[in-house]
């Protein structure tokens, strides 16, 4: 510590660098949220060679859990309208909407897969909802989230009301079927093919669900977590640099 720092620190007896406001304190590792994985150890050392002392670390990885009313802003309005519209069609909202997550100013409906098409059609057609633009589907693979390993995530944009919501649908690895939204949003044609190509999610009802990026005779689904990245070690300035998926991981 230089003299200048010392005098500044001594002036009021506390470290001026130290920020005690709540948002800068470390997050609480509570039981909130949904556990998707339990992480053991650190640095990717799992073959007994870990001398760091972190080998016994157990950390549960939790995604934001369901929110309760009020969700805030226009979220309640959309949720009310959606539930009302589903009830009108004789569908209990609780049967269709598994949970509602509000995180980082974004609204997510987790939809049971058998009701996905009905919900999407309602979201598109109801004048108070009117999510007319679907920005496609993105797959996510949670290999440790048993029974709901494969997720299909849809982002729906309402140009009319200037809103954006997210639909999330899950399917188990053993039965990777999710209804296609092609009939509701034709733009999902290629997006669903892409998600099928990379994750092996079968979109039932899609008119031509074939591979789109990978060659037609490709084996396996490359974006799944258990699919290796591949790659070969390279030599750089005399040292062997391992392939990216063989390097030390801190996650």
């Amino acid at each position: 510590m230089s003299d200048a720092d010392k005098s500044a620190g001594d002036a009021d007896g506390v470290n001026p660098e130290k920020d005690l406001s709540a948002e800068n304190l470390p997050g609480q590792r509570g039981q909130g949220g949904e556990e998707i994985r339990v992480q053991r150890g650190m640095f990717g050392a799992n073959n007994g060679g870990d001398t760091s002392g972190y080998g016994g670390l157990v950390r549960s990885v939790r995604l934001p859990g369901p929110a309760s009313r009020p969700y805030g802003g226009w979220f309640d309005e959309v949720a009310d309208e959606l539930e009302g519209a589903l009830e009108e069609q004789g569908l209990l909202p609780d049967n269709a909407i598994g949970k509602t997550v509000v995180d980082r100013d974004e609204l997510t409906f987790h939809i049971e897969r058998e009701h996905l098409e009905r919900v999407a059609r309602t979201l598109r057609d109801d004048p108070a909802l009117r999510f007319e633009l679907c920005t496609g589907v993105s797959g996510v693979h949670y290999p440790h989230d048993k029974g709901r390993e494969l997720h299909a995530v849809y982002h729906l944009r309402s140009i009319t009301h200037n809103r954006l919501i997210r639909l999330e649908v899950s399917a188990p690895d053993s039965d990777p079927h999710i209804p296609s939204l092609f009939a509701v949003y034709p733009t999902n044609d290629w997006h669903e093919r892409e998600t099928y190509d990379f994750f092996g999610i079968v979109f039932d009802g899609h008119p031509a669900l074939t591979r789109i990026m990978m060659p037609d005779d490709w084996q396996g689904f490359p974006q799944r977590k258990d699919y290796p990245l591949g790659g070969i070690p390279v030599e750089y300035k005399g040292a062997q640099i391992p392939a990216p998926d063989q390097r030390r991981s801190y996650s």
Binding site: V61, E106, T108, V153, L164
Partner: peptide, 9 residues
């Protein structure tokens, strides 16, 4: 980065 997901356009 804290767990969660987001969509930015």
């Amino acid at each position: 980065v804290p767990p969660g997901q987001t969509y930015v356009a």
